[in-house]
């Protein structure tokens, strides 16, 4: 059937062009500014004429700032968080969907509830826990004073995770959205799969390894990439959990480039840093856009 859709198509086209301009313009300005030198910039102020100083700016970022080291930290932390979140979610979702028995709904609810309150809202007490992960052990031991009665003094263990990769990564993993997505995905699989596996004599772990994992490869990699990017762009938690510039992540380092006292900030240098910090996840998104959307079971026809 052919109908006249000119007016709506024209409006849609205009909307998309405007949207593209809105999204791309800041990125273009970043790239152009990164090619100018500080002196250029001071002389001409804001200008969309590209300069020739990109290599110089990059060299300065490389030698004079902590960004290279912080970018490495970002790669490591984001990889740990992505693998951790997907791995933890896979195990939980498998237990919730494929096993009989009580408590499954409760476990699922406990994981999904964490989506509603982001880490940023409880930053101060999350910091407290990370500063001493043994806190709950101490609390249980000292409840009612039974530990002191046994040993003569209250239990006071200390296990500080601040300033370590574990301390930055673990709180970023405490979020159940991957569990939600994998449970939804497992429930769409045909129930005959697991039954066939049982008939063939495969145990639950064998079924997980030989059937479920190969089947879930698409969603798992999509989730992993998505979670990698999500961890890379974290700002508030790495800001408080790492105290020294060498330990923190690249986004925090970028924001710290601007705190340079009184003079006019070296915007070209900052924008060069912004490119360095943004490029890795941006390449991932641009390359895997379809796979991410499809893998999160959100359908891209």
């Amino acid at each position: 059937m052919i109908e006249n859709t000119r007016s709506i198509d024209r409006a849609a086209g205009a909307v998309l062009i405007a949207g593209l301009a809105f999204v791309l313009a800041p990125l273009a300005i970043v790239v152009v500014t990164a090619t100018q030198s500080y002196e250029d910039f001071l002389a001409r102020n804001f200008s969309l004429v590209p300069g020739t100083h990109l290599i110089g700016n990059l060299r300065e970022i490389w030698t004079r700032t902590d960004l290279p080291r912080q970018t490495l930290n970002s790669v490591i932390v984001a990889a740990i968080v992505a693998t951790g979140r997907v791995g933890l979610a896979l195990c939980t979702a498998y237990a919730v969907v494929f096993f009989t028995g009580r408590g499954r709904g409760l476990v699922y609810a406990a994981a999904v509830a964490s989506i509603m309150l982001p880490l940023e809202l409880m930053i101060i007490t999350a910091y407290q826990v990370t500063a001493n992960v043994a806190l709950p052990v101490n609390a249980v031991a000292n409840m009612g004073g039974w530990w002191a009665a046994l040993t003569g003094g209250p239990l006071d263990l200390h296990w500080n995770l601040l300033d370590s990769y574990a301390g930055i990564s673990l709180p970023l993993m405490a979020q159940g959205s991957a569990t939600l997505i994998l449970v939804q995905f497992f429930r769409t699989l045909p129930p005959q799969l697991a039954r066939a596996a049982i008939i063939d004599g495969a145990g639950p772990l064998r079924f997980l390894r030989d059937i479920l994992l190969p089947l879930s490869k698409g969603p798992l990699t999509a989730l992993g990439i998505y979670m990698f990017i999500g961890a890379w762009v974290q700002y508030m938690w790495p800001l408080v959990a790492a105290s020294s510039p060498a330990r923190t992540m690249a986004v925090v380092g970028l924001a710290r480039l601007q705190e340079d006292g009184e003079r006019i900030p070296d915007f070209p240098l900052q924008m060069t840093g912004a490119i360095l910090v943004t490029l890795p996840p941006l390449i991932l998104i641009a390359l895997f856009q379809r796979r991410i959307v499809r893998g999160l079971a959100l359908s891209e026809k």
């Binding site: 498998y94 408590g103 476990v107 964490s114 409880m122 826990v129 990370t130 709180p171 639950p204």
Partner: peptide, 20 residues
């Protein structure tokens, strides 16, 4: 087995979500 599978995530959630 299901509890052993779910335990790691539950521990992380407890420490860094519910405990805070």
């Amino acid at each position: 087995l299901p509890w052993a599978l779910a335990a790691p995530q539950l521990i992380v959630l407890f420490l860094f979500f519910y405990l805070p």
